[in-house]
Amino acid sequence: MTTVSSPASLGTPPTVAQLLLGCETRIVHGQRWRHRIIEYGTGKPLILLHGSNGHADVFAKNMHTLGQDFRVIAVDALYHGFSSKEPWVSGFYKRLDIQAEGLLDLVDALDLPTVSIEGESMGAGIGLEFAYRWPDRVDKLILSTGFGSVDLEGSVYMRRNVPESELTRLSRVAVTQPSFESMRRRMEWLVASPESVTDELVNLRLRLYALPEIAEMMRRMSEPGDDEPTPKYQESDLAALTVPTLVMWTDKNPGDGPEIGARLASLLPNATLVVIQDAGHWPHWEQPAQHDAIVRDFLLGGPGAVA
């Protein structure tokens, strides 16, 4: 296990628009679905997948740095942002299956024989499902603060006596009672340092949620019972996932602490664990320099390589 930390950033933070200067945003039409992507750089492709209720822009801090070595493609997952939103299925874990199929649809449309994938939270679930079903299409996999449809012992999300997660409650309030304050509370759940959530970032998500089609999807996802755990995989199933994997966790991840990341890594036959200090659920946003260095070393090194 590697533990890293990063000093606090100084100065006024740049806006998302400033961070994405020079990146290309476009719509890709696959055989089945429409996909919005943000792209930068050349080299081996790296797909970045956001978490639940999110969008590709949350990787704005990482695009240029990672784009020095990779063709970085941040994606609006199915049901999110400006990507396709049908067919709708109720149930977080059921949707992961379709979202993984959506990722295959995109990878095929971009004519990419193989890709590396970093998924955060829900995105980790999509990446894990994709690697299970199409391992020959994955070079390396990064699971950031998430593990998808696995019945992982000790996880707060696997406790059957918890009727609703705090994140689902905050998401529902942000959708049904949209305001700057309710959206800020929702987004502050993601981070260890609330000040890292800028007013601009809150307003960006408020604007997205004001669009009727996106608002309807977010409302459906935050309905009570939608995140009721019905895992697809047991811990023993992880032995079949042989793709070189980096489990990226944080010391302040809400709910599931670094011990859950360690358990996940211990069950994967070809995995390395790294714990980033002073970060919550969004290490790519809170500690971008350390995040990007770790990702670069893992992808450019041999199997399991990490700085």
Rank of each mutant, 00 (worst) to 15 (best):
L143M: 14
L46V: 03
A17Y: 08
A305H: 09
E120T: 13
D97V: 12
R95G: 01
G123Y: 13
E259C: 10
H29F: 10
E153H: 10
E188H: 02
F180A: 14
G127W: 11
R219C: 06
H281C: 11
Q234S: 14
T242E: 13
W88T: 00
Y40I: 05
I276N: 01
V173T: 14
T242Y: 10
E286D: 07
G11T: 08
I37Q: 00
A17P: 03
E101Q: 14
L206H: 11
D199V: 11
L267F: 08
G125Y: 09
T2D: 02
G257H: 09
P229Y: 07
L66S: 06
R71Y: 09
P212E: 05
A289D: 15
D251S: 13
H291Q: 09
I126S: 04
I73C: 00
S165W: 00
G301K: 00
F180Q: 13
G301Y: 03
A265I: 08
W189C: 11
G119W: 02
D297F: 07
T42E: 14
L96W: 01
D227Q: 13
S266V: 13
D278P: 02
A109R: 05
V16G: 05
E86V: 02
V197H: 02
L10D: 12
A265S: 08
V72Q: 00
T176W: 03
A124L: 08
E24Y: 03
